[in-house]
Nucleic acid binder design. Structure first.
Lengths: 325, 325
DNA sequence: ATCATTTATGCAACCGATTGCAGTGTCAAT
DNA sequence: ATTGACACTGCAATCGGTTGCATAAATGAT
C-alpha cells in the first residue's frame, strides 16, 4: 500500500506537505495541492486511518450498540445512523448485545479504544456502568434518560394517551396493557401513561409486563388477556401485538370485532391482517438525531448533556373497533 | 487514558515488557506478567488499537456490507457475523448500501484502511470492482459466485425444486415464479431451477422479475399473477410472498384454498395468516461461515479461494393446498 | 535598497504500540 | 575459574501519519 512518503517522493515535496494537502489545503499553494493530489490519485494512495488516529487522537469511528438487531424496531434506526454517519465521513461499528448487560459492557470496552463516541440503545446496562464509560467517551442514549448525557427519547407516553382515548371513544372500558421489560425506560413511560390515562378516563386497566417483548411472548399472553376480561389491549410493541392478534384470531376471537389491539413502533406497516392500529415511533429520525447529537458532543466537548424528545402519533388502521356490547 | 508507558513506569519495567505481557506472555517470567497485568488493571489500561494496528498492520476489524438491513433476511445474518466476530476478538463495521452499487463501492473504500477483510452481500456491485478490492484485502462473498474468492452460497435451487414438486404433487399445473432482481445470483439460481423443474414435471411456468424484492412489489404484482392464470406462486422471498398473500386475500382470493403461495428465506416464521410455506435459508449459519472463511483467509493468505454451499429445505406451513379443480 | 510582513514549505518531534537484537544474570558443565 | 547455554528484559528503530516551529522566498512599505 502506498504511504505518504511515496507520494511525497513522487511529487517532490515533504511528507508534511502531502499531509497538509489533504487536511489543510488552504495552507498550501493551489498548484502544490493539485500536484500532490494528482500523484496520490495516480498511485492510489489512501491515508492510513490508524496512523492518523494515532497522532490526532480522532478515529473517525463511532459505535452503535443495540439489544437485538432482529427486532424490527431497530433496522430503520441502524440504517439511519449508518447513513448519517457515512455522510459525515464516519464509520460505524455495530454491536448486538442480545439483551445481555454483560455483553453490552464488553462490547463498549471492545469498541472504546477505537471510537470517538457511542450511540447506545442499552435498556439493561446499569446506570453506573454507563456513567463510567461516559467519562472516557461521549455517549448518546436512545430511549434512556440519564442526566448529564445526551438523550434521544421517543415520547411514547403521548401516543399511549392518544391510544387510550381512542379506545375509550370506541366504548372500551376494560383495557389491558401488555408491557415490555420493566427495566426499559419506554416501558416505564408507557406503563405510567396508561395508568394515568385510565384513571382520567375512568376505565379499568390491567397491566402485565413481559420479560422479553417478542412475537412468542405476545402469542403466549393471550390466556392472561382473555382472563382479564378486557375488550382491548395496548401492546408494548408491534411484535407483541402481532403475536396476540394471531393467537386471538386462532382461538376464534375476531379482531377487531370482538377485541381491539393497538401496537407500538409502527414497525410492521400494513402487513398484518387486520392491519395493526399502532403508535408510530420515529426510529429513523431518532437514528439521525443520535448521530447529530454525538457529532455535537464531539465538536463541543463542554456540551455533553442534552435531551431531545421525539413525537409519536397514533396511526389508525384496522385492528380497533367499537367495543362489543 | 493510561498508556503503555504509564504501566511500565508503575510496574518498574520497560514498555517492551508491558507489551509482551499482553501479546507474548510466554516470553516473560510469570511473576513479571502477573505484576504488569495487576498494574494495568489497576489504572484501567487498554491497549490503543490504532497504535497496535500501526505497528502490526493488523486492525482486528472486519467490515460487513449488506444491501438493506431492513430486509428481514439480513438481521439474523448480521447478528451471527457480529457474534462470531466478537468471539474471535474482532470488531465489525456495518455498511448498508441501500442497493446502490456506487455506495457499496464507496463503503468498501471507506472501510478498507482499517479492516483486515470484508464480508460482502453486494448483489449489484460489478465483478471487476470486487476483484479490484480483493487485491487489497481478503473478501468473502455471500450469495455471489466469483471464482478466486471465498464464497458462501445458499443453495436455494434445491429448495425451489422441492417447492415445485410439492406444488405439482398438490395438483398445480400452472405455476408462477415471482422473482427478484435479475443481477442477483440467488435470482439466477432460482429462476433456472424453477424453469428446469417445471419442464421436468410437465408444468407450465410463468416467470416475472421484480427490480426490487419488497412487500410492496409483491403486493403490486397480484394483477400480473392473476392474469397468468396460475394456481400457485413461488416468490423470491417471504416479503414478496407476504405482499402477494395479503393482496390476494384482500381481493377475495382465499389462500391456500384458491391459490397457493410459497416464500423463500423463512424470514417471517409463522407470523402470517395463513402461515407461509417457505424455503428456509440458513442465514445465521451463512453469517457464521462467512466469518470462519474470512478468518481462514487471514490466517492462510495463500488459501483465498473457497466455495461453500449451504443447504435449504422446504418448510410446510399453511399457504399451500391442493389446486382448485 | 532595506526591512517588515506574509506566504509556502520543510524539519523533526510525537502519537502508542511492536519487535529484532543486544545485554544481563543464572546456572550447569568443564 | 571459565565458558556456554538459556531465560529474561531493555534499547531503539519502526509503523504512517500530524503539527509546532523554523526557514526561505515573495511581497509590500518606506
Amino acid at each position: 500500500m502506498p504511504t505518504i512518503a511515496g507520494v511525497a517522493d513522487l511529487a517532490g515535496v515533504s511528507r508534511a506537505t502531502v499531509s497538509r494537502a489533504f487536511t489543510r489545503p488552504e495552507m498550501l499553494s493551489e498548484e502544490t495541492v493539485r500536484r500532490v493530489k494528482e500523484v496520490a490519485d495516480e498511485i492510489g494512495y489512501r491515508p492510513n486511518r490508524a496512523a492518523r488516529a494515532l497522532s490526532t487522537g480522532q478515529h473517525g469511528n463511532i459505535a452503535l450498540i443495540v439489544p437485538d438487531i432482529a427486532n424490527p424496531f431497530f433496522p430503520p434506526l441502524i440504517r439511519a445512523v449508518q447513513a448519517r454517519a457515512d455522510e459525515a465521513g464516519l464509520s460505524v461499528f455495530l454491536g448486538d448485545s442480545d439483551e445481555d448487560p454483560a455483553r453490552e459492557d464488553r462490547l463498549i470496552g471492545r469498541f472504546m479504544p477505537q471510537v470517538d463516541g457511542f450511540v447506545l440503545a442499552c435498556p439493561r446496562l446499569s446506570q453506573a456502568a454507563i456513567q463510567a464509560h461516559a467519562r472516557h467517551r461521549p455517549i448518546v442514549l436512545i430511549n434512556r434518560d440519564i442526566a448529564g448525557l445526551s438523550r434521544i427519547l421517543i415520547d411514547s407516553a403521548r401516543g399511549v394517551v392518544a391510544a387510550m382515548r381512542h379506545l375509550h371513544g370506541l366504548g372500551h372500558r376494560r383495557i389491558a396493557y401488555l408491557g415490555g421489560p420493566d427495566v426499559s425506560w419506554a416501558q416505564q413511560q408507557r406503563d405510567l401513561a396508561v395508568r394515568q390515562s385510565a384513571s382520567e378516563l375512568g376505565a379499568s386497566i390491567e397491566t402485565l409486563s413481559l420479560p422479553r417483548a417478542t412475537f412468542e411472548a405476545g402469542f403466549a399472553s393471550a390466556d392472561a388477556i382473555v382472563a382479564s376480561q378486557a375488550t382491548a389491549a395496548i401492546a408494548f410493541d408491534d411484535l407483541v401485538a402481532e403475536g396476540l392478534l394471531i393467537q386471538l384470531t386462532e382461538r376464534g376471537i375476531p379482531v377487531p370485532d370482538a377485541f381491539s389491539i393497538i401496537g407500538c413502533d409502527d414497525a410492521l406497516g400494513p402487513r398484518t391482517r387486520p392491519a395493526l392500529t399502532t403508535i408510530s415511533s420515529p426510529a429513523r429520525e431518532a437514528g439521525l438525531e443520535s448521530v447529530e447529537a454525538l457529532m455535537e458532543n464531539l465538536q463541543y466537548p463542554a456540551r455533553r448533556s442534552s435531551r431531545r424528545m421525539m413525537e409519536t402519533a397514533l396511526i389508525l388502521r384496522g385492528s380497533t373497533a367499537a367495543a362489543p356490547s
